[in-house]
Design a protein around this nucleic acid. Structure first.
Lengths: 337, 337
DNA sequence: TTGTAGGCGTTATCAC
DNA sequence: GTGATAACGCCTACAA
């Protein structure tokens, strides 16, 4: 790589000292107007860009936030937009890494971000992550971090979460209100906090309605559509068939929908279906899928703001959780006559 | 931010010199085995991470690729996965910035990436970008860059493109083969290369089939679904109605579909519809939408590989375009009996 | 108003 | 085998 322009080059060109150039460029008061103009003009003409690495070495901060996400699907892409916006406002740059739901990749990314000396982290852990020592180490170093969407019980750090329990509760209750009673739950990986919390909400709504919880109506597994398809097949092949399905994500709901259609059942008449996330696609499918809205953009923005606040107050220890409210979105897939 | 551990700390702790620590950590041969072990163990224990900024200052490179994309929708998210994968293999880190299709944001991002001293750029320009001086400046500095997906005629640089002309051609030809003849084109912003190339392919297919090109069947506009909805309304309200629509993106096709349904027309019987991109959603809608597949992951991976090759050969001037082939995906929306 | 010197974390080049 | 030292690009006392 070519050597890029430095203030030294400008100084030499102009026959003045480096410090004067530095001062002129940063608008310090004690610089002769002419000198300043000469410097600024030349810098402009030569398209000078300060070297962040040098700054970072000097200032002990990079003005960079490391963002760790499991993937770039609709939810996270939207959340990142929110993070991006808030970060930009505050003069921060964002470095995004995706783990692809893999613990190993998350580890590598964490290391890289640490080497890049990001000022802090905004994290949503991979579903594959069982031990969180890599995050504990970050904390030990006194580097602030904020978690969002996916909770990590083992870690004391500020978290921006959705009230997943409530989400599961209102989804299930909605199904019950619509007259469904044999409600199945399509979950994510067993240990996943968000999946489990939604599951608890589901059970709570059943209990409240006096409906006995039935283990046979519960399926757990991976995060993808194919899995949901297979598991729904199983539910529909069983002797005891559900008359409604609450899927813990829209992706899973779509997989379920495909299975239901393949079985020749009608939604919502034969079987009700509700998802979670309010991905735009749920409104385009036929029938459109009822779901629980999760304010992705707002979550990202809030996470970034909280992070920036922490940076400003130097309070890396804040551990207040911010819990956002889920919202029921009723569409055709649960509108049984 | 706290001061992070440095090799100096390790040196002091161990009562040896900084250079020895450096050598030990980097596995240089001329270090006493015991010394090495002491250093490595302590570094491990204290979770030492080298400071990239210092390295970068010294080495004049950052091992970082700046990636500039218009957004994080399905296509770009997938392409970024490809870039990521290839970059990781080669020891590069990726910094992703999205312009939100805004020229101003693209400018800011370019500047930031430049300040971060990325070793080079992988770029897909915003649809809003009319002048490309900011990219010319990068070239002038001798920093390598690779473009993908969206072409920029004014710039001489390697590009990974889809054969958009061919894509437009095969999409239109498919409609013609299915018996449609009054085929409308739903385009993106007027100046956009990809939109225009697809448009040319469309016209070429019409001509070949002896179908007279009709300006009234052409709509241009923004990139989003709502726009496509409005413009399709217009097409369907006109005296001369099309019997098929070729939308230059799946997003637009979805907007068109909503409009068609609202008008009470049946797809594919009353009106045929084909999109472009092969977003997964097109296969889930009812009817499923025929489309043109664009190998997003491969494009990203190829772009990154080309970039890395350029870095290794120090040949910043290569300007071979790599043109990938589009593939027709036939689904229900064009399967007229 | 301007210049000099020291330092941020790391490596490379010499010397010992 | 190990240790000083200079250098990377920049900023900030301090000195002039």
């Amino acid at each position: 790589m070519e050597r890029l322009l430095t203030i030294k080059d400008i100084a030499i060109e102009l026959g003045i000292s480096i410090s004067t150039v530095s001062r002129a460029l940063r608008g310090q008061p004690d610089v002769n107007a002419e000198t300043r103009k000469a410097v600024v003009d030349l810098a402009e003409k030569l398209d000078y860009q300060p070297n962040k690495a040098a700054l970072s070495l000097l200032n002990k901060h990079t003005n960079t936030i490391g963002v760790l996400v499991p993937n770039l699907d609709y939810f996270f892409a939207t959340a990142i937009k929110g993070i991006d916006e808030a970060a930009l406002e505050a003069g921060y740059t964002v470095m995004v890494c995706q783990s692809n739901e893999s613990y190993g990749k998350e580890l590598i990314n964490t290391k890289r971000l640490l080497e890049s000396r990001v000022d802090g982290f905004i994290i949503s852990v991979s579903s594959d992550t069982k031990i969180v020592d890599h995050f504990k180490k970050i904390q030990d170093k006194g580097i602030p971090m904020v978690f969002f969407d996916r909770d990590v019980n083992e870690l004391q750090a500020p978290k921006i979460l959705l009230n997943n329990f409530e989400g599961g509760y209102i989804a299930t209750k909605h199904l019950i209100n619509k007259g469904y009673s044999k409600i199945a739950f399509l979950g994510g990986p067993e240990r996943m906090s968000i999946s489990n919390q939604r599951f608890e909400g589901y059970k709570s709504a059943l209990k409240e309605a006096g409906i006995k919880f039935n283990v046979k109506f519960v399926e757990h597994g991976d995060f993808n559509q194919e899995y949901a398809y297979v598991n729904t097949n199983e539910l529909l092949r069983a002797k005891q068939k559900p008359d409604a399905i609450f899927a813990m994500s829209d992706r899973l709901a779509i997989g379920a929908m495909q299975s239901i259609k393949k079985h020749g059942l009608r939604i919502p008449d034969d079987i009700g279906l509700i998802g979670f996330n309010n991905e735009p696609i749920t409104n385009l499918l036929s029938p459109s899928i009822s779901t629980i809205d999760q304010p992705a953009f707002e979550m990202g923005k809030t996470a970034a703001r909280l992070f920036i606040e922490m940076m400003n107050n130097d309070s890396t220890a804040s551990s207040d959780n911010i819990v956002l409210k889920p919202k029921l979105i009723v569409r055709e897939s649960t509108m049984r006559k």
